[in-house]
């Protein structure tokens, strides 16, 4: 259990392109996982709808207020568009991504307000269950996305204030502009993807019903 010193005085650093690529690959893998998560809700929706067991797809008058739905989906799409622009325009990235963050939070808040004015409860049939389950989990993950966007905003802010640092620690480049760039791109990729998922949810839950 003794400490073993590296035989060579200098440790060869790993290729600097690995970590940015990790982010690009990782975010696409996450997107795949996310898709399978929501596929479960899509399946539950269409399965229970086609089954309509006991004629209980909807019990009573069940129609979610579409005004909020439109508000949420517009906030999501605009937010995703802003973040995409931010990843494309380094000069104005900070205000753009801050706007994206604000809109993401607005979407979450709108969803919470909508729950208080639904006009039906989770027990009002299968549609009500799917609606609430799907939107609630979607909002939960949107909260994680909002955290992610926030880290990008904060990074951009600090980068603008303190400039580029590039210390090399333990043979690994710890901070690099390409890495920050890749981080923002990964975040915006995922957020655009997530907004698309939100749009699909909107179509299924509000338009098709």
């Amino acid at each position: 259990m003794e400490a073993s010193a590296p035989t060579h005085p200098r440790i060869e650093p790993e290729p600097p392109e690995w970590q940015p690529r990790n982010l690009r690959v990782g975010v696409r893998l996450l997107a795949g996982a996310e898709a399978f998560f929501f596929v479960s809700f899509v399946f539950a929706y269409f399965y229970l709808r086609s089954l309509d067991l006991n004629r209980s797809w909807k019990i009573g008058h069940v129609s979610p207020p579409i005004g909020y739905g439109i508000g949420i989906v517009v906030a999501l799409v605009v937010s995703a568009a802003l973040l995409w622009l931010a990843s494309r325009r380094p000069q104005t990235a900070l205000p753009l991504s801050a706007g994206a963050l604000a809109l993401a939070l607005a979407a979450i808040v709108l969803q919470c307000i909508q729950y208080t004015t639904l006009g039906f409860g989770p027990g009002n049939g299968a549609f009500a269950s799917v609606f609430i389950g799907w939107t609630a989990t979607y909002t939960l993950f949107a909260l994680f996305c909002a955290y992610w966007i926030e880290t990008q905003v904060a990074s951009l802010w600090r980068l603008g204030r303190e400039g580029v640092q590039r210390p090399v620690r333990e043979g690994v480049p710890t901070y690099d502009v390409p890495l920050a760039r890749a981080g923002l791109e990964a975040c915006s990729f995922f957020w655009i993807y997530y907004a698309v998922l939100g749009f699909i949810a909107f179509v299924i839950l509000y338009v098709v019903t």
């Binding site: 006991n54 209980s56 019990i59 009573g60 409860g121 027990g123």
Partner: peptide, 11 residues
Amino acid sequence: RQYFPTPLRRG
């Protein structure tokens, strides 16, 4: 042919 376990039309 089908029985449902709970009373219909809960609140």
